[in-house]
Measured scan of single mutants.
Amino acid sequence: VTLFVALYDYEAITEDDLSFHKGEKFQILNSSEGDWWEARSLTTGETGYIPSNYVAPVD
């Protein structure tokens, strides 16, 4: 499982989006939707859509 880490803070715009803070880690559930990925936060356990350009793979 490839994990991703937030590079910036993000505040949800719609109820389907997931708010997060810089440094938060995610498991990507679906990355086939283009620039918005469905993800689960490993910090909160919540799922929602995140902007793919706000995250990077964890080394």
Rank of each mutant, 00 (worst) to 15 (best):
V1K: 10
V1L: 13
V1Y: 14
T2M: 13
T2K: 12
T2Y: 12
T2L: 12
T2S: 10
T2N: 11
T2G: 11
L3C: 08
L3T: 09
L3W: 10
F4Y: 15
V5R: 05
V5W: 07
V5M: 09
V5Y: 13
A6H: 00
A6C: 02
A6Y: 01
A6M: 01
L7S: 03
L7A: 03
Y8G: 05
D9S: 09
D9R: 04
D9E: 06
Y10H: 06
Y10E: 00
E11W: 11
E11M: 11
E11P: 04
E11K: 11
A12S: 11
A12L: 01
I13E: 13
I13M: 14
I13Q: 15
I13F: 09
I13W: 08
T14K: 14
T14W: 14
T14E: 11
E15S: 13
E15R: 10
E15D: 14
D16A: 14
D16Q: 14
D16C: 14
D16K: 15
D17V: 15
D17E: 15
D17Y: 15
L18E: 00
L18H: 02
S19F: 03
S19H: 06
F20D: 00
F20I: 05
F20Y: 01
F20W: 01
H21P: 06
H21Y: 13
H21L: 11
H21E: 08
K22H: 06
G23I: 01
G23F: 05
G23E: 03
G23M: 03
E24Q: 06
K25D: 02
K25I: 15
K25L: 15
K25N: 07
F26E: 00
F26Q: 00
Q27P: 00
Q27C: 11
Q27W: 14
Q27V: 15
Q27T: 10
I28R: 04
I28E: 00
I28G: 01
I28Q: 01
L29R: 05
L29G: 04
L29S: 05
L29Q: 05
L29P: 04
N30R: 08
N30C: 09
N30Q: 08
N30G: 09
N30A: 08
N30V: 07
S31L: 10
S32K: 11
S32L: 11
S32Y: 10
S32P: 10
S32R: 10
E33V: 12
E33F: 13
E33N: 15
E33R: 15
G34S: 14
G34A: 14
D35Q: 12
D35H: 13
D35V: 12
D35F: 14
W36F: 10
W36V: 08
W36G: 03
E38W: 15
E38T: 12
A39D: 00
A39S: 03
A39R: 00
A39W: 01
R40F: 09
R40K: 12
S41M: 06
S41F: 03
S41Q: 05
L42H: 05
T43G: 06
T44E: 01
T44D: 03
T44W: 03
T44M: 02
G45K: 05
G45H: 07
G45S: 05
E46R: 15
E46P: 01
E46V: 10
T47G: 04
T47I: 13
G48L: 02
G48N: 01
G48F: 03
G48C: 02
G48Y: 02
Y49R: 15
Y49L: 13
Y49T: 07
I50N: 00
I50C: 01
I50P: 00
I50F: 01
P51V: 02
P51W: 08
S52G: 07
S52C: 09
S52L: 05
S52K: 14
N53F: 10
N53H: 12
N53D: 09
N53P: 06
N53A: 14
N53Y: 10
Y54C: 07
V55T: 04
V55F: 09
V55K: 01
V55S: 01
V55E: 00
V55L: 11
A56V: 14
A56L: 08
A56G: 09
P57T: 06
P57V: 08
P57Q: 08
P57S: 07
V58G: 05
V58Q: 07
V58M: 12
D59G: 12
D59H: 13
D59C: 12
